[in-house]
């Protein structure tokens, strides 16, 4: 299965047409090069909000939640059906019974396959009134893949990835955009290793937010046994990413890879981490 994951780098004020043009270009090129799934960054809602409002979004008080929610779903559905591709446009703030940061996965028919909210929150996110989401969900995708999301600091939470893994996930969409330091080795990379899953990391980068870009798998089934399949953040070596698109106020960097479920299941069989849990111990003390 060919997949694509995207880093968006904010370079100036975002206008609605700029945003649509670059999202369209990213999804169109990913589709043209054979991707069946595209993963856009965490906090893409900030860009949508800015495009709607005409000024940079710095915190939830600046946001029209309803407007972003409407646009997010309309665009997701249109892009998915027009390009016949599964995608997540990334995450955004939504006011439900409480304020959450959520992401949706759409399939090619424009249907919602999966919704997930962020659980681990930074001090800044808490101060804005964002609440931890209460569930961790997975969804059956295609060709035997089971998908789960990890948003922001959830990409540093071993419990989150373990719960996804135990619920059957073998591919995690890591929308890693966050306010603060990003370190993939301490986050997504190592969570992939201890759960023997694949993960696609996407991120939004700007003055206040940061995050990495990459496609990760268990060391044993990746080049140089590095655990890195597509190295958008130069963890192993400095190399150009698969595609770059320069827009008016946004630059997109895209990583693509062919994932093999057979290889993943092979390493799970030959080194069965999942079979060697000490369940009795955990039930007593965890």
């Amino acid at each position: 299965m060919r997949v694509a994951t995207v880093q968006l780098i904010r370079q100036g004020s975002i206008r609605q047409e700029d945003l649509i043009i670059i999202l369209d270009a990213v999804i169109k090129k990913s589709k043209r090069y054979g991707a069946g799934l595209v993963v856009l960054p965490g906090q893409v809602g900030l860009l949508i909000g800015e495009a709607l409002k005409g000024k940079e979004i710095l915190e939830p008080d600046d946001v029209s939640f309803q407007g972003i929610d409407t646009v997010y779903h309309a665009w997701s559905k249109q892009f998915a059906t027009y390009y016949n591709i599964s995608l997540t446009l990334g995450s955004y703030w939504v006011e439900e019974e409480e304020l959450f940061s959520v992401a949706y996965l759409y399939n090619q028919k424009g249907e919602v396959l999966l919704k997930q909210g962020q659980i681990q929150l930074s001090e800044k996110e808490r101060s804005w009134g964002i609440k931890p989401y209460q569930e961790i969900n997975v969804a059956e995708f295609q060709d035997g893949y089971v998908l789960g999301f990890a948003l922001g600091l959830d990409n540093y939470a071993p419990e989150h990835y373990r719960i996804l893994n135990l619920q059957g996930a073998n591919l995690v969409l890591g929308l890693s955009t966050e306010w603060g330091m990003n370190d993939q080795l301490a986050g997504i990379w190592q969570l992939v290793q201890q759960n023997q899953v694949y993960a696609l990391e996407s991120s939004l980068v700007g003055d206040m937010v940061s995050g990495g870009l990459g496609i990760f798998g268990p060391c044993e089934i990746t080049p140089l046994e590095s655990g890195v399949i597509c190295d958008g953040s130069a963890l192993v070596e400095e190399r150009p990413v698969d595609m770059e698109i320069q827009g008016n106020s946004l630059q997109a960097r895209i990583c693509m890879a062919d994932l093999s479920l057979e290889s993943l299941l092979g390493i799970r069989k030959s080194y069965p981490i999942n079979d060697l849990y000490n369940v009795q111990l955990y039930r007593r003390w965890l």
């Binding site: 209460q134 989150h160 373990r162 849990y277 369940v279 009795q280």
Partner: peptide
């Protein structure tokens, strides 16, 4: 302090959903 709420959510899943391994290990 950042961990408290999240741990409460995780505890709804863990350790209940571990389903393989040394469950039959004797005490």
């Amino acid at each position: 302090t950042e961990q408290v709420d999240a741990q409460r959510i995780y505890s709804r899943y863990l350790p209940r959903i571990y389903k393989v391994g040394a469950e039959d290990a004797e005490d």
